[in-house]
Design a protein around this nucleic acid. Sequence first.
DNA 1: GATTAATAATTGACACCTGAAGTAGTTGGC
DNA 2: GCCAACTACTTCAGGTGTCAATTATTAATC
Lengths: 170, 170
Amino acid sequence: MAKPKTNLKLLEQRLDAETRIRDDHHLSVRLWLRLLACTNRIEGVVRQRLQADFQTTLPRFDLLAQLERARQGLRMSELSQRLMVTGGNVTGITDGLEKEGLVVRESDPSDRRAFKVKLTAEGQRQFARMAAEHEQWIIGLFEQMSTKDKNQLVELLGKLKSHISQTPDL
Amino acid sequence: MAKPKTNLKLLEQRLDAETRIRDDHHLSVRLWLRLLACTNRIEGVVRQRLQADFQTTLPRFDLLAQLERARQGLRMSELSQRLMVTGGNVTGITDGLEKEGLVVRESDPSDRRAFKVKLTAEGQRQFARMAAEHEQWIIGLFEQMSTKDKNQLVELLGKLKSHISQTPDL
DNA sequence: GATTAATAATTGACACCTGAAGTAGTTGGC
DNA sequence: GCCAACTACTTCAGGTGTCAATTATTAATC
């Protein structure tokens, strides 16, 4: 095998290209780490305050929020989809909320395998209180960022979301 | 008390202002939900693949990654800070990794309360294999986004991060 | 040098979350 | 009508995460 003659110009171009690619890769990782840091921080604050002010948790709050928007009630499987968690998990959280009287499982006459999960009156009251506070927390966390920057972020994250939703599971 | 004469122009301005504020609040919530959706999606993909390809988990991977960058070893408390999780959690994950032989706790002669946690040779081998794959996953997930957009996102998330890091715990 | 306060790590109780296996009810051919 | 395939939900085991309490050691104060 003959040793190939090196073409400096080409080599330089190739190195530049590789550098660019490597930088771009590095950029992706940096982006991911930053995304994660921001999300974890905000989630942590919200979780702490839910605990401190209302003695409840984020997953419970999220489940109530879904029911609030769907007064006719939701099936366990619908909750599972909307909350993006597994069915087994929804069972557990619903058990807890039902025990606290914030939620009921009503058996669905049209399909005896399924339930309609609904907010109780007490559940509605409690959620309303929490939701108002919760919104203020979110607003507060983002308030130092300009409206322009927020709009840009929403825009860019929208792109990202549509791209990654194409990546298949597994 | 004289009934104030309504100034339509001012009233309109005020309504506009309130609308703007309400929209901005809505914007913050939308931004938060989108941020969360993106992060959860990516994290889910990474978690699934770590499980499928390496029979391991994200927290274990993260802990190994910290040790890889700190060859001299890290204390449990340092791991706790860097991983942004509580000490009790680090104990558990380290227990698992030690049982699998990827990590060792070396007692620190300068402070008999503390350990230096270090990667074993096997730990280094396994992590190297995983890290290479992992980087490709991240690159793949972001590859449809332009370098310009990625740079902008990193930028904006940087701002967000610095703002929210000012929010005090509790 | 003895007491007190602070620090490093572990433990235990509880909540989440997943994936796989199990139960009960529905549905679509045949 | 019957049965196989599917669907709704629960259960269980295992890993992750928190907080509060505990143990062991070190540091600080007197």
